[in-house]
Design a protein around this nucleic acid. Structure first.
Length: 538
RNA sequence: GGUCCGAUAGCUCAGUCGGUAGAGCAAAUGGCUUUUAACCAUUGGGUCCCAGGUUCGAGUCCUGGUCGGAUCACCA
C-alpha cells in the first residue's frame, strides 16, 4: 500500500495556493500559526463563546434595545446617532472583551478599515478592524508585534474560514449591529481549503455525508437555508436522546452496556457482521441486538434496565436502513405488553416535546401527532385496508407489509402478532397462537417493537429449536440457539416486558428528514474512489 | 439487483439544431476608514466523469463503463 502525498489528499488549485502563500507570510509575521490556546473574555462568565457573550445580561439588553429601534426603521435607514451613542457609552463601560472564532464570511475590506464576522459554530459576531489601531500578537512571544500596522497586515492575510482571536471594545455600528472594535488580533489556525458556498452550502449529498465537518461548517455559514440546518438536526437528535435517558432514569431504569462483539449473533432476525479474534482464534459477530444480554440482567435482579447504543446488521442499505443504527432497548420486570405500550407512548410524547417543543411534528407534509397513539390488531389492520384478504398465520405478515404498513402515518401500535414470527415473545393467555407483541408504526416506518418477554426456559428452548430448523431450511435470519441464555432463564426471570426503539427513525420524524443518512453524522458510504480505503479492501 | 435521472471552472449552475466553453460566487491585483450576499475596476482559472464509436467537426448523438441520486424488491 502506498502512502498518499499530502498534496494528493488536499487538492491543489488557485484557492489553496493563495491560502498557502498567506500562511507562509503569516508565519513570518506571527511565528507559529497553530498556537495552543486563546484566553477568551471573562465578561460573560466561564462559558466564553460568542453565543454566551451575546446572552450575557447587559449585552443582551443592549441588543434588545437596538433591535427594537432598528425594527422601526425603513430598509436602508440608520438608527439615530443619539440612541447609538447612548448605547455605545453603556457598552464601553463593560470594558474589553476577548472573542475567538472562525471567519464566517470573506473579510470586507474598505481601504483602511474592515469588517468580518466570527462564528463559534452557533452564533456570529461582527468585528471591526481599523488599520491605525489594530495590533497583531506574536504567537511565539505572546506580546504585541511592534512593526507598523502589524494588526492590519495580519488581517490582510486572513481567509474565509480561518480562526482568530481578538481583543477590543463593544460598539454599535451605524447600521445598528453589535460589533467588537479590535485592538489586538491573534492568529489561531488556518483554513487551507475554501469554505463551502455561502449561498448554496453543499449541494452534493455525498459530500454532505462523507465530509460531515464541511456540511456542519456550511450549515453555520450559509446565509439562507430551508428546514433545519445540519447542526440543528444533530442538536435535536442529542435532545431526544438525553430526554429519553432522563425519562428512563426518572422512572428508576439503570443504563448498562452489553457486548458489541459476541460469539453468537442472536436476539433478532438479521444477518450479522462477522469478524475474527486473532489471539483467541475465534469468530465473533457484531451484535444484531442486545436483547438476550439485557434479559440476563433482569434474571440477575436489574428490574429496570436499558441500553442505548448501536446494533449492526449486514443487510441492505436504504433510506431507512444503515448497517449500524442506534437502538434504545429497555426491560421492566413485572410489566406486560400493555404496560409497555402505555409507557412507550408516555416516553415518546415526553421526549418529542422536549426535543422539538411540540407534541406534533410536520413530516413530509403530514402532521404527525404524538399526543394520541392508535392501537389495532394486525388482523383488523389487514382487513381495514384489504377487506377480502385470506388471513392465516403464515400469510399474515406478508399481507401486513404489502397492504397496511405504508398506510400507518399516525403513531399506531399493531398488536397480536403470530407467535411463529415472535420467538422471544410470550403467547397471549387467550390465544396460544398469538404473541403478546406490538410494533409501533409512524409514517409507514417501524419505530418500535416490544413484547411480554418469554421467561419459561423450556418453552424458550423449544422456540429456538423451531428457529434452528427454519435456519436448516435456508432462512439465514432465523435465530440462533443461545444455550447460555436458556441457562440464565433457568435461574428464573420474573415476568417482564421489553421494547426496542429505533432512534434514527425517530430522529428522522422529528427533523423532517427523508433519509436515515441525514440523521447519522457519519453514515456508511462506499469507500471514496482513489483513496487508500479502497486499496485496503483488495 | 431492476427502473428512471444526473456528472461542465474551487463552489452553485447555464450551454439552443452537432460548429472557437459561459454566468454568479470564490480567488488574485488596484481603489475605498461604520460595511454586512459590501461596492467599483482589472486578471487568472476547464481531462466538459472515463473508454470507444458516428461525423469534416462531439460538452451536445450512439455503445459500454465509473460514481452519485431517486424509486422498487429484502431488511428495523
Amino acid at each position: 500500500m502506498t502512502i498518499p502525498e499530502f498534496n494528493d489528499i488536499i487538492e491543489q488549485n488557485d484557492q489553496t495556493t493563495a491560502r498557502r502563500e498567506h500562511l507562509e507570510k503569516l508565519r513570518e509575521l506571527v511565528g507559529n500559526c497553530y498556537p495552543n490556546k486563546f484566553a477568551r473574555s471573562a465578561v460573560s462568565g466561564p462559558e466564553d463563546t460568542i453565543t454566551s457573550l451575546l446572552n450575557f445580561g447587559p449585552i443582551g439588553d443592549v441588543l434588545i434595545e437596538i433591535k427594537e429601534v432598528v425594527a422601526t426603521l425603513a430598509e436602508r435607514e440608520r438608527p439615530p446617532a443619539e440612541i447609538k451613542d447612548a448605547l455605545n457609552e453603556r457598552l464601553k463601560e463593560l470594558g474589553t472583551v476577548r472573542i475567538s472564532g472562525r471567519l464566517a464570511v470573506p473579510p470586507r475590506v474598505m481601504g483602511k478599515a474592515a469588517f468580518v464576522h466570527l462564528s463559534d459554530g452557533i452564533s456570529r459576531m461582527q468585528i471591526y478592524v481599523r488599520k491605525q489601531d489594530a495590533v497583531a500578537i506574536s504567537n511565539d512571544t505572546g506580546n504585541s508585534i511592534e512593526s507598523e500596522d502589524s494588526g492590519w497586515e495580519l488581517f490582510g492575510l486572513l481567509d474565509h474560514g480561518d480562526f482568530i482571536g481578538v481583543e477590543g471594545f463593544l460598539f454599535i455600528t451605524n447600521t445598528g449591529e453589535l460589533s467588537v472594535h479590535v485592538e489586538k488580533l491573534q492568529f489561531l489556525a488556518k483554513a487551507m481549503l475554501p469554505m463551502p458556498d455561502k449561498m448554496h452550502g453543499i449541494a452534493d449529498p455525498e459530500i454532505r455525508q462523507r465530509q460531515r465537518y464541511a456540511d456542519l461548517i456550511a450549515s453555520s455559514l450559509q446565509i439562507e437555508h430551508e428546514g433545519m440546518t445540519t447542526r440543528e438536526v444533530f442538536e435535536t437528535r442529542a435532545r431526544v436522546i438525553s430526554s429519553l435517558r432522563r425519562c428512563l432514569e426518572d422512572k428508576g431504569y439503570i443504563e448498562v452496556e452489553t457486548p458489541m462483539l459476541t460469539p453468537k449473533a442472536t436476539g433478532a432476525a438479521a444477518k450479522p457482521f462477522e469478524t475474527h479474534h486473532n489471539a483467541l482464534d475465534m469468530t465473533l459477530y457484531a451484535r444484531i441486538a442486545p436483547e438476550l444480554y439485557l434479559k440476563r440482567l433482569v434474571v440477575g435482579g436489574f428490574e429496570k434496565v436499558y441500553e442505548l447504543n448501536r446494533n449492526f446488521r449486514n443487510e441492505g442499505i436504504s433510506y431507512k436502513h444503515n448497517p449500524e443504527f442506534t437502538m434504545l432497548e429497555f426491560y421492566c420486570a413485572y410489566m406486560d405488553v400493555n404496560g409497555m405500550m402505555d409507557f412507550c407512548e408516555e416516553l415518546l410524547r415526553e421526549s418529542v416535546r422536549n426535543a422539538t417543543g411540540h407534541s406534533k411534528v410536520m413530516y413530509e407534509g403530514n402532521k404527525i401527532d404524538f399526543s394520541t397513539f392508535e392501537k389495532i390488531t394486525m388482523r383488523e389492520a389487514i382487513l381495514k385496508y384489504k377487506p377480502d384478504a385470506q388471513i392465516d398465520d403464515s400469510t399474515m405478515i406478508g399481507l401486513f407489509d404489502e397492504f397496511v404498513e405504508h398506510n400507518l402515518i399516525q403513531p399506531t401500535f399493531i398488536i397480536d402478532f403470530p407467535k411463529s414470527i415472535s420467538p422471544l415473545s410470550k403467547a397471549s393467555p387467550e390465544n396460544p397462537n398469538i404473541a403478546e407483541r406490538f410494533e409501533l408504526f409512524i409514517n409507514g416506518m417501524e419505530v418500535a417493537n416490544g413484547f411480554s418477554e418469554l421467561n419459561d426456559p423450556k418453552e424458550q428452548y423449544e422456540r429456538f429449536v423451531d428457529q434452528m430448523s427454519e435456519r436448516e431450511r435456508g432462512d439465514e435470519e432465523a435465530m440462533v440457539l443461545d444455550e447460555d441464555y436458556i441457562r440464565a432463564l433457568s435461574y428464573g426471570m420474573p415476568p417482564a416486558a421489553g421494547i426496542g426503539i429505533g432512534i434514527d427513525r425517530l430522529v428522522m420524524l422529528l427533523t423532517n428528514k427523508h433519509s436515515i443518512r441525514d440523521v447519522i453524522l457519519f453514515p456508511h458510504l462506499r469507500p471514496e474512489r482513489g483513496s487508500s480505503d479502497t486499496e485496503n479492501n483488495q
